[in-house]
């Protein structure tokens, strides 16, 4: 469908904190495993980057079922950071990830500051990881998670401790479950973060009215999918205005148009999450769709879209309404 276009006419790549991404579309943590589950289906090297499932020091079993439920235009999850632990990741998953021609970002989750540091140290000792994303915003675990991410002093402290241990890209993944995300964005920036990942899931719940039971075993969970996109856009807009470091936009991106909205409100790159469950090739299609959009609008660099929102001049009629 897009054949005949010269792909080298438009710059799709971007360098953030020294890491080169071949395009601005990454797959979000927890929505692509460790990159090896989809190889039968898609050429994952065409992605801008892969962010791993959150890694903790020891393996975590995760929460009891039911862990997921579909909602209107979205889904609730309560996986509970189920993961194989950093050591098995290094021996069983990293060798494969090294063979991919795409950026690899390791996501780290922990229930103490020391654990964050220990996981990062274990990863830092190995080749093949381009950077780290720090999960201080998981709504589905008792310790750590949101209790860190909703306290700006804690976000600053975690960022500072990790910053002192690595020169690689360090992005802090913020929660939308706060009043002013800009406060947290500034806290992470002041402590030396290279980037911010905005947003993690929103706290939500559902009820089975026939059994009077919650839809998830943990009662509440994290809402994701297209339902949260407007919230995510507003948070990315707020965060990117508050800081100078790049913001990576996340939240309900299903297609290229969604991704372009995020770029326009200030995201330097985006992550595709829930869409991967429906189409494991979604990220690649979105990257291509963004390139085609730039071509149609005579832009030579996808970066020209970043922060290009025009919120000042008169509003035009919304042609897509009908």
């Amino acid at each position: 469908m897009y054949e005949g276009y010269e792909s080298d006419m438009i710059t799709t790549s971007v360098t953030l904190a020294g890491v080169q991404f071949k395009n601005r579309v990454l797959v979000a943590s927890g929505t692509y495993g460790y990159g090896d589950d989809t190889i039968e289906l898609v050429d994952v090297s065409k992605l801008g980057g892969i962010i791993t499932k959150s890694l903790s020091m020891k393996p975590r079993d995760g929460n009891p079922p039911p862990r997921i439920v579909e909602t209107a235009g979205g889904m609730l999850n309560s996986i509970g950071l189920a993961n194989i632990g950093v050591h098995r990741f290094l021996t069983e998953k990293l060798p494969f990830l090294r063979t991919l021609d795409t950026a690899i970002i390791a996501n780290i989750a922990a229930s103490s500051i020391d654990e964050y540091c220990n996981v990062l140290d274990a990863l830092e000792a190995e080749k093949g990881i381009n950077g780290y994303e720090i999960n201080v915003s998981c709504p589905n675990v008792k310790e750590g998670g949101l209790s860190f991410g909703t306290n700006p002093t804690m976000v600053e402290e975690i960022t500072r401790r990790l910053r002192s241990r690595t020169k690689k890209l360090l992005s802090i993944k913020l929660t939308p479950n706060v009043t002013h995300i800009s406060e947290f964005a500034r806290a992470a920036e002041s402590a030396g973060a290279d980037a911010l990942s905005v947003i993690n899931t929103l706290i939500g719940m559902g009820v089975n009215i026939h059994t009077r039971k919650p839809m998830l075993s943990t009662v509440t969970g994290g809402l994701s999918g297209p339902a949260i996109k407007p919230v995510a856009l507003a948070k990315v807009y707020e965060a990117s205005k508050a800081v100078k470091i790049p913001v990576i936009g996340i939240g309900g991106i299903m297609n290229a148009n969604d991704a372009i909205e995020f770029l326009m409100v200030g995201a330097s790159a985006v992550q595709v999450g829930t869409a991967n469950y429906i189409d494991p090739g979604a990220g690649i299609k979105i990257a291509e769709g963004i390139r085609v959009f730039c071509e149609a609008h005579n832009l030579s660099d996808v970066g020209d879209l970043v922060g290009s929102l025009d919120a000042k001049t008169e509003f035009s009629a919304i042609s897509s309404w009908l």
């Binding site: 927890g30 589950d37 989809t38 079993d61 995760g62 862990r67 997921i68 439920v69 469950y277 494991p280």
Partner: peptide
């Protein structure tokens, strides 16, 4: 049978409790 999203392991949404195994699900 149970709720699942992706169907091949990336969402981790469909745990089944194991008996007598090292891991829980």
């Amino acid at each position: 049978e149970g709720p699942m999203a992706c169907g091949f392991g990336i969402c981790q949404g469909c745990p089944v409790e194991l008996v007598g195994a090292e891991r829980k699900y």
